[in-house]
Design a protein around this nucleic acid. Structure first.
Lengths: 231, 231
DNA sequence: GGATGTGAAGTAGTTCACAGCC
DNA sequence: GGCTGTGAACTACTTCACATCC
């Protein structure tokens, strides 16, 4: 009663994709010493309208202050709860090439709640190396039953790796390899394709159309915040 | 008249994001020696319904064969035209760390039409190196007025780099750095955030909800094509 | 027979406009 | 005064169902 908990009464897909953006904006705000933020400011930085921001956030419960906006820290916390950052996720990464290294070393990829448990590769020059505090194992070694596996192999290797992950009882796979893979029922595969945003950008360059916030991930079109030195 | 050309009478944003996926599926098909593909097959691999595929493709003109499906080569060509792959785009990449290298070496990132013209970094150990056939220049060197710039720097460096790109008369920026940046009116910035797909996956893991095709980029949920050895 | 292409219907998401509260 | 939160209106996208053509 007092703390409704609520834990998100079914959020829409576009909302779920925007929440991480809002969260990062709020984090930037906090790191600059600001304590509150309002829907108009978030919307400007995220490339969506203030109304959309308020609708999205209203789905997480009522925690804004009328007349003042949102407490940035509370906002970060609520979004984290809604997205499940307060749980633990074991993550394994397969394919420790440039992309795999970039991901595990990124400040942004493994958000709070995600814990890297193992790295795999096939290249003898890479297996045995220590990357981000983990010794890279051979992909034929045992794979623990992690929450989610990230595949960063070349496209030719992706299907074989995915078969191994499925055999290791992993049911959620994030595939960065440009290769459609087959999995049995009960396993979810999400694809990340770098080139899609580039292609969308090119389409709009050709057609003069500004997507203005309709972007797949997050697009700011033909405008930015006023200050020319954000940080 | 005979060849309507047409060049896409304004495609919707979701359609634009799906076309590259269809194109890759068709390419996989061609590389396996198949010559046609139908909307049901595309839809299964792309995680959307056959009707959605047909609607999307109908926007590019009438080139399917009733009773038979689409000629895979024609399909690839038409999508390429619609997305503007028949034009030339000069691309510069700033930040040649793991991510920058992964992008320029990827078979998937620089699609047909995109031509890498220069690479930049600040690290003295990297400047002067040859990466993917280009000598990495210092970011303080002159930057040509390219069609699009790709930013793969650490977040702290992103704003400074973007300011330099804007000064170099670049009006389209693809930002992989987890940092919201400010640009003047007339410049488009698109953000790519690796962690968003991971967070979406986690949300659905927690809530048991399958997005089934609603995915931001491309998600196959709880199912895949029948054959367990795609390639 | 079989698959495309498309009006019509249905559903989902966004924006408007404003009441409610600080 | 200012900004949140939300019913109502609107817009966009998807799905249904089927006429059309190979």
């Amino acid at each position: 009663m007092a703390t409704p908990r609520l834990r998100s009464a079914r959020l829409s897909e576009p909302t779920i994709a925007r929440l991480p953006v809002y969260q990062r904006i709020a984090q930037g705000r906090v790191s600059r010493g600001e304590t509150t933020i309002d829907s108009r400011q978030i919307g400007e930085l995220a490339g969506v309208t203030a109304t959309t921001v308020r609708r999205d956030l209203a789905g997480l419960g009522r925690f804004g202050t009328r007349g003042a906006g949102y407490d940035a820290t509370v906002l970060i916390e609520r979004i984290g709860e809604a997205l499940g950052h307060d749980r633990r996720y074991d993550v394994v990464v397969v394919g420790i090439g440039n992309l795999g290294r970039a991901l595990v070393n990124s400040t942004n990829f493994l958000i709070r709640g995600a814990r890297l448990v193992a790295l795999y590769d096939v290249d003898p020059a890479v297996v045995g190396q220590t990357v981000s505090g983990h010794v890279v194992k051979h992909v034929d070694d045992e794979i623990p039953s992690a929450t989610v596996a990230v595949v960063c192999t070349p496209p030719e290797a992706a299907q074989g790796v995915v078969d191994r992950l499925v055999a290791a009882n992993i049911h959620a796979i994030l595939n960065f390899a440009p290769q459609v893979v087959s999995v049995p029922l009960g396993t979810a595969v999400h694809y990340v394709d770098f080139s899609i945003e580039l292609q969308i950008l090119m389409y709009h360059l050709n057609n003069g159309t500004g997507p203005l916030g309709g972007g797949v991930l997050h697009s700011l079109e033909v405008a930015g915040p006023h200050r020319s030195r954000g940080s």
